[in-house]
């Protein structure tokens, strides 16, 4: 067993885990944060995307011990209290989901995209950036709309925060 300590959604957690425990397993089974989904088991579908130290990571191919000492953000930690994060609100508003299984990973990827590239994203960029996230239901059209809108709303939200 190996001891890991990390901050998950703002809370410090420490656990003894089998060293081969995956980060996805760790958040799902040890922390009961089941919004991080496992779709393909092989880091292709993107349903398990979380942020580790602010960067999008596919949690099904990272070991929990690799995240030792890191800040981890999962879909459950994205919203500020009861109010949806702007990207979450945009996915709901634009029907950017059907079965919902890919949705948490999509949203975490989208937020990372905005963090890296800013909020003024053109459609080609969004589509390219989403290549690591498979959705089998929507045909992506509404997801792309949601990311466009969510990106703009994120700037608005952070501008408001700065003003406050």
């Amino acid at each position: 067993m190996a001891s890991v300590t990390m901050t998950v959604n703002g809370k410090s957690v420490t656990a003894d885990v089998d060293p081969r425990t995956l980060l996805a397993q760790f958040v799902r089974e040890h922390l009961r944060l089941t919004g991080t989904h496992v779709g393909c088991d092989t880091s292709q579908c993107g349903a398990c995307v979380v942020h580790v130290d602010g960067k999008a990571v596919k949690a099904c191919t990272m070991l929990a011990v690799q995240a030792d000492g890191c800040e981890v953000l999962t879909i459950e930690g994205l919203a500020d209290g009861a109010e949806l994060h702007p990207m979450q609100a945009a996915f709901r508003e634009h029907h950017g989901l059907q079965c919902g299984y890919c949705t948490p990973g999509m949203i975490m990827t989208a937020v990372d995209m905005v963090n890296r590239l800013g909020s003024d994203l053109d459609e080609a960029t969004i589509r390219h950036e989403l290549e690591g996230n498979i959705c089998r239901c929507t045909g992506y059209h509404n997801i792309v709309r949601a990311v466009e809108t969510g990106a703009k709303a994120m700037t608005g939200a952070s501008a408001r925060q700065a003003a406050e």
Binding site: L33, T34, H37, T74, E76, Q88, R92, H95, G100, I107
Partner: peptide, 12 residues
Amino acid sequence: PHDSAVRHVQGT
């Protein structure tokens, strides 16, 4: 919106 839209975007 989908009946579970809010839960889907929250991962719940």
